[in-house]
Deep mutational scan, measured.
Amino acid sequence: MGFKLLSKLLVYLTASIMAIASPLAFSVDSSGEYPTVSEIPVGEVRLYQIADGVWSHIATQSFDGAVYPSNGLIVRDGDELLLIDTAWGAKNTAALLAEIEKQIGLPVTRAVSTHFHDDRVGGVDVLRAAGVATYASPSTRRLAEVEGNEIPTHSLEGLSSSGDAVRFGPVELFYPGAAHSTDNLIVYVPSASVLYGGCAIYELSRTSAGNVADADLAEWPTSIERIQQHYPEAQFVIPGHGLPGGLDLLKHTTNVVKAHTNRSVVE
C-alpha cells in the first residue's frame, strides 16, 4: 500500500471513529477524501466538511520552486461564519470567499490569524475590503508590521502568557507558548472536538522541520505538551499544512522538532 493511500485511509478511519463516538456532533463529509496538494491548482481553494458547521479550507501556493498546501478553518456561528487564517495570499483568499459563498452561503463576518507569517495573514486586506472584521493577538499584529505583512485590524486580548485561553464565538483560542513562531495560536472547536494546530503542528508525513527561522526550538516541545494537557479530548487535529489526523500529530511534531534540534547540535 502506497504512503499517500495509507495517509488518506488514516484520515478516513479517524473521521469514521469520530462519527461513531459522537453521532450528534459529527456529520463528516462523505463526498470524498481530504484534498491534497496535487489536486488543488494554485489560485483555487477546496472546502472539506469535518463536522456539522465545521470545515477546513485548503489552498496551495508556490514557494521556492515548489507547491505547498495550506489549511485553515471555518466555523459556523449562528447565521454567520468565523474564518481562521487566510488562504495564503490575496488571490487565494478572494477564491476562498467565493467558494464559501458557493458552498455554504453564509457571510464571513470575523477572521482570526493564528500567527504573523504570510500563509496566515496574506489576504487580510481582501477580507477587510469584503467587510470582514480581522483579528490577531497584539504580538501577531506587531510582528506582521515588522515583517511588512498585512496586519489584522483588531487585537485579541488575554493571550499574552503561555497557557492563556479565551473564548471567541464558537471557538476557544489558546496560546501554548512559542513553537513554530513566538505568537502562534491554537484554535479548538469544543462542539466538535476539532483542534486546529496551525503551523505549530505537523502532518504525519512530514519528517523535516522546514521553516524554523522564527521558531523557538527549545520551547516548542513544552508548548505541545500544554496543548495535549489542555485538549486531551480532541479527536480531529488539523495541521497548518497537509493531512489531518488525531492527537498523534502532536507527538510526531515533537519528535521531528527534537530530531532537528539534535542534528543542529551535532553539526
Rank of each mutant, 00 (worst) to 15 (best):
L97P: 04
P232H: 08
V11Y: 08
G148K: 09
P138H: 09
D216Q: 08
S22K: 12
Q229P: 05
F168V: 05
A95K: 13
L96R: 00
S191L: 08
K4L: 05
G53S: 10
Y196Q: 00
Y12R: 10
Y135P: 00
E225P: 03
W220E: 00
L13G: 07
L217D: 02
Y34A: 08
Y231M: 02
I186P: 01
S161N: 12
D183I: 02
D164M: 11
V28E: 10
G122D: 09
L82Q: 01
H180R: 05
L13C: 15
F174Y: 10
D77I: 02
L243R: 14
D125I: 05
G2F: 15
S113Q: 04
G131F: 03
Y34M: 10
S160K: 13
R141T: 05
E101P: 08
V124D: 04
Q229K: 14
K4V: 06
A21Q: 14
F174M: 13
E44I: 08
I151D: 05
L24H: 14
R263S: 13
A95N: 14
E33N: 10
A87T: 04
Y196G: 00
A259H: 09
L24C: 07
A215M: 04
E172D: 07
I201E: 02
R142C: 06
K251H: 12
H154F: 14
N262I: 11
H252P: 02
A136I: 03
I201C: 02
D119T: 00
V67M: 15
E203R: 01
G72F: 05
R46M: 14
A90N: 09
S31G: 11
A178K: 12
L217M: 11
D119C: 02
S162I: 11
L13S: 14
R263A: 14
N184H: 03
D183N: 08
I20L: 11
P69W: 15
S16M: 05
V257Q: 02
A59P: 04
K102W: 10
A136D: 03
V256K: 02
A59W: 03
I84K: 00
S191E: 13
E157V: 12
G198P: 03
L83H: 00
S193M: 13
Q229E: 13
S155E: 14
E267I: 07
P170M: 04
E150K: 06
I186M: 06
N184M: 00
V237W: 03
V266A: 14
P244Y: 06
A111G: 08
T222Y: 13
E225C: 04
A178T: 07
R142V: 13
S56K: 08
D29Q: 11
S31W: 10
T140V: 03
T153L: 11
N255H: 11
T254W: 14
S193F: 13
M1L: 06
I40H: 05
R46L: 10
T140M: 02
M1G: 07
G245A: 05
I224P: 00
A59F: 04
G163P: 02
E99L: 15
V171K: 00
G43C: 04
V146D: 14
G163A: 06
A130L: 09
S30P: 11
P170W: 03
M1V: 06
P190K: 08
S162L: 10
D52G: 10
G177S: 07
Y188T: 00
L82V: 09
E39R: 12
G123R: 04
G197H: 01
S139G: 10
A15E: 06
G2I: 07
D216Y: 05
E267Y: 10
Y202K: 06
T254C: 07
A215E: 06
R76A: 10
E267G: 07
D29H: 10
A90M: 09
Y135D: 03
I104V: 08
L159W: 02
P176D: 00
E44A: 12
L185R: 02
A21W: 10
G65T: 09
V112D: 07
P23K: 11
R110Y: 12
S162W: 09
A25H: 15
K102V: 13
N255L: 10
E80T: 10
H230A: 15
I20N: 13
A218T: 12
I238T: 05
V256M: 06
G53E: 10
P176Q: 01
V194S: 01
V108L: 09
A66E: 15
I20Y: 10
T60P: 05
V42G: 14
V237Y: 02
D52P: 12
A66R: 12
T207R: 12
V189C: 02
L143Q: 08
I201R: 02
L247A: 14
E150L: 04
F63Y: 08
V212N: 08
Y68S: 09
I20A: 12
E39V: 12
A25P: 13
S38N: 08
G246Y: 05
P23M: 11
C199P: 02
S205A: 10
V42L: 09
T207A: 13
L106S: 09
S30G: 15
A209T: 09
E225G: 11
L83I: 10
K8I: 11
G2M: 07
Q61D: 05
I151M: 09
A192Q: 12
P244W: 06
E80I: 07
V121T: 05
G245P: 01
A192G: 10
D77A: 07
A94H: 13
L247K: 14
Q103K: 15
P244R: 02
F236M: 10
L97M: 09
N184V: 00
I58M: 07
S7Y: 15
D64C: 05
L156R: 02
F116G: 04
A21R: 11
L73I: 07
A51Y: 08
H252L: 04
L106A: 10
K91V: 15
L204K: 14
A209M: 07
G197F: 02
R142F: 13
A59D: 05
G197S: 04
A87I: 01
H260K: 12
S62P: 08
A111R: 03
G32M: 08
V42I: 07
S160V: 12
F3Q: 06
F63Q: 10
S30H: 11
V108C: 02
G32Q: 11
G78F: 08
A59K: 05
K4D: 11
D183A: 01
A130P: 06
Y196R: 02
A179M: 06
R76T: 08
Y188F: 11
C199S: 03
H241V: 00
L82H: 02
E225D: 13
K4F: 06
I201P: 02
S161C: 07
